[in-house]
Structure formats: structure tokens, C-alpha cells
Amino acid sequence: MNLLHFKVIAGVALLIFASLLSLVFEGVDRIIHARMQLRLGPPLFQPFFDILKLLGKENIVPRRAIPWAFNGAPWVSAAAALMILLYVPMGSLPPILAGSGDLILILYLLGLSAVAMAVGGFASGSTYANVGAQREMTLMMSYELPLAVVIITLAWFSYRSGMPGEPFSLETFVGMPVWSVVGWTGLFGLICLLIALLAVVPAEVGKVPMDIAEAKTEILEGLICEYSGRNLAMMKIAFSLRTLVMCAVVVSLFFPWTIGKHFGLQGAMLFLADFVFFWVKVFLMQIAGVTLVRTAFGRYKIWQASQFYWFHIAGLSLAGMVLLSLDVIL
């Protein structure tokens, strides 16, 4: 068995594992969300039941929809989100497609996933889906600036501070935590960048307070207004995958620590421990970055969200950029 075969098998196994895990995480997210509201919440496997039920339902394409775009969008969106997992290192395990993709590719895949959803919304031929798609595009334009600033600053910093590895590669940040490289000014800069990135997470995954494109009490689920059956199931998978992937990227950038080496584990056990620990970190990130936030706040309006990202969060990320630059220069 050559390396290619191994990579294909490992990749397929990982993607199936991650898809199932994202649904489990969503189930936990819903339970914790409910418990914080003093409710009982759904069963842990409710997202699975939902998806299975939807797969058995009729797939309706509206008369005014553009069928190929309408049917293709959920698949592209889910596939783009899945692809990212092939480029994310998990603990001490290198990514499956190591060396052939970096942070810029991940950013574009995240963007592609969101754009595919917007295309699906535009192709629905529904007023509400159209409004939702426009909101999604507006939201993307708003959060891409702080997101790009965070990524570019980190890459530039890793390059200038002489961290081993390619500056834009996620493995660089996993191999050596940025926190161990920075000085005092840089520490504050990193905290600014982390907060900015965490603020982008709800918009990237489409959860309250940034679920503006899918606001059900305003525009009837917006983007996914017209979706049903298999397409809606794919949309739901795409949403939970985006949540998982975004949290995995944040964890890889800012919380890359592993536990395997501390326990002196060797070989397969080291990889297994790191792999499990990585997903535990992702899980905690999802609870902190998505579940808590969506329980604590209401929904913004689109112009308020744009204002929030363009001024507050972009300002914060630029402050982080300046502080990190000072750290390198001084």
C-alpha cells in the first residue's frame, strides 16, 4: 500500500468521522444551550434524527428556482467546509494534505462555503431567500477584513520572529505556540487578535448574534427558506461542519498545545492522545465561542453587524497588528 492509498483511506475516514462528530457537537451545543435557559433540551442525537428524517423527505425545487444552482449549492458548501479538515493538523498528526495548502486556502474554502450558500439563496427565487443571501454577502464583506488582518498579522509575525516553517502554514503555528514567542507588547497584541477572531466566529458559522442571514423571526430562515428534504439536510450538515472547522482553525492558531508528550506517550498512543485532545479543545472552543455567545445575546441587524465588524473588531485587529509589529521591531 503506497502513501497515496493510505492518504485516501485516512482522508475518507477523517471526513466521515468529522461529519458525524460535527453533528454530535451540535447535539451537545443544543443541550447546553437549553440547560442554560433552564430547559431540558433535545436528545444528544437529535441532529442525526433530523438529518435522517430530512433525507427521507421530498426534495422540492421551487418553480422559480434555478435548479442546478439551487441543488448544487448545499453540496458545494458542505464539501468546501469538509475540504478544510484535510489541511488542519490535529495535535501532533500532520494534516492529510500536508504541504499542499495553507491558511490562505483555508480562508478561501471558508469563503467558498459561505458564498455557495448565498448562491443557493439567490437561486431559490424567493424574496426571503434573496434578502438572506444579500445579508450573507454583506456580512462576509464585513467580517473578512478583521479575519484577513488576523491571519496576515500572524503570518508576518511568524516570519519575522523566525518561527520554524512556512509563515502561512497552519503547521507552523501548531508546531510552536505563538504565545511562547511573543514578548509583553506582543502578548496584548495576540489577545486582541484572539478576541477579534472569536468575534468573527459567530458570523462565520451563522449563529446568534450574527445569524442575520438565517433570521427566522425576520425573514423566515432567509437563505435556507426554500430548501427541503435532502438539500436541507446537506445545508444543516454544512452549517455544523462550518462550526466545527472554524473552531478547529481557531484552536490550531491560538491553542495548539498537546498532551501526548507530557505523559511520555510513544508511537500510536501519542497520536491517539493528541488526536482526542485536539477534538476536546475544539469542543471547548465551540462551547465558549458559539454556545455561550448565542445564549447570551440577541440578534444584530445587518448594518449594526457591519458597523460592529468594520469599526470595533477591525479596530481591535489593527491594534493587535500594531502591538505585534512593535513586539517584533522593539
Binding site: M36, Q37, L38, R39, V208, P209, D211, A215, T217, T295, A296, F297, G298, R299
Partner: peptide
């Protein structure tokens, strides 16, 4: 009113 702008936690608190 809270539910209408997506503030579900306040809605559930009110209902309790």
C-alpha cells in the same frame, strides 16, 4: 419581543 430579535434566553426566562 425578545424572541422576535433572536434573544431566546430572555424569552425563556420570561416564560419561566
Amino acid at each position: 419581543a425578545c424572541y422576535t430579535f433572536g434573544y431566546d434566553s430572555a424569552f425563556h426566562l420570561g416564560m419561566i
